[in-house]
């Protein structure tokens, strides 16, 4: 993905220079104005980078400090680093509840994202590749779902799940994350161009069943878009706060987001929680930081292909 992108950008740069009149050959010998422009642009980008990295830099420094040092030392500089002590304390606090929260977050976002991606792929493929009555109605309804504020459904969801006796269970957080209207939409758009009808017809003539065709041909050809859907859902579920807040009463079922806010709220009673909240925050963003770096490479590929065709 990245190589083609870079090639494209190079094309943009190279082609005009070749076509441009000689006086415009500023590329080879940068005029002072061009150099000033370049410096200005780089400066803007650096300022933006400082802004976007500042809280992350701060939390890395802060997670090496004891609670007294958090208040007593310069926030941007190290003071008596004790990262491993803090990590050990964080993991051990309250019988290792942090590890449990981490496991829950992994469970919710892992299972939720795999299920949501598969179901969205099946649905989007069905709408893209078959003609049937009610198809546009189904698609339109799901599309409206993209625009429904997720929080508008959270409280009624809680009431429904409590009524079904499923409130305060793993299911109450897992089931709502199994559906991704955005994934459904993207899957349809992508399947329309990426899965050729002729290939499906050939498989049918070979005697393959419809469901088998989806799992062997459809799913494989849709992979680039599905990676996007999957990563989006992972991030969405990992970052979710209101749904678990509404659904869960048992601390042991909490995801990290909810757990961290209970620590933050407890700081008044137990000052030691300051250091734990900071270290816990750092630990809980590391998995997603890694996912972000992977995602921004894959994602543009998937989306652009869907958007341009």
């Amino acid at each position: 993905m990245t190589t083609t992108d870079e090639q494209q950008t190079t094309l943009v740069t190279v082609a005009p220079t070749a076509a441009a009149p000689p006086r415009d050959s500023s590329k080879r010998q940068p005029t002072p104005a061009a150099r000033a422009k370049k410096i200005l642009i780089t400066a803007i980008l650096l300022v933006a980078a400082v802004y976007f990295l500042l809280p992350i830099y701060w939390v890395i420094i802060a997670s090496t400090k004891s609670t007294p040092d958090l208040f007593g030392s310069n926030g941007f500089l190290f003071a008596n680093p004790q990262l491993w002590t803090n990590i050990a304390d964080t993991l051990a606090y309250n019988n290792g509840i942090f590890v449990r929260w981490l496991g829950n977050s992994l469970l919710y976002s892992g299972v939720g994202a795999v299920g949501a991606t598969l179901f969205a792929a099946m649905g989007g493929y069905a709408v893209a590749k078959y003609k049937f009555k009610g198809k546009e109605l189904v698609f339109g309804t799901v599309l409206a779902g993209v625009l429904i504020p997720a929080t508008a459904t959270a409280i009624p969801l809680y009431l429904l799940f409590s009524w079904a006796g499923l409130g305060n269970t793993y299911w109450s957080v897992l089931v709502p994350t199994l559906v991704s209207p955005f994934g459904f939409y993207l899957s349809r758009i992508y399947a329309e161009t990426a899965v050729p009808d002729s290939l499906l017809e050939a498989a049918r003539l070979d005697g393959a069943g419809e469901i088998k065709i989806f799992f062997t041909i459809g799913l494989r050809l849709m992979t680039p878009a599905l990676v996007t859907v999957f990563l989006f859902q992972v991030v969405g579920v990992w970052n979710n706060y209101l749904l678990p807040l509404v659904m869960l009463a048992d601390e042991r079922l909490y995801p990290l987001t909810l757990g961290m806010t209970t620590w933050q709220a407890g700081q008044d009673r137990d000052a030691g929680l300051f250091a734990l909240t900071v270290t816990g925050s750092l630990l809980s963003i590391i998995p997603l930081m890694i996912a972000m770096v992977i995602m921004q490479r894959f994602w543009r590929g998937g989306l652009t292909e869907g958007a341009t065709k």
Binding site: M260, I285, M292
Partner: peptide, 13 residues
């Protein structure tokens, strides 16, 4: 990548 990084930080965190 640097500009996109914050998207991976949960709103709560």
């Amino acid at each position: 990548t640097m500009f996109f990084l914050p998207y991976g930080v949960p709103g709560v965190i």
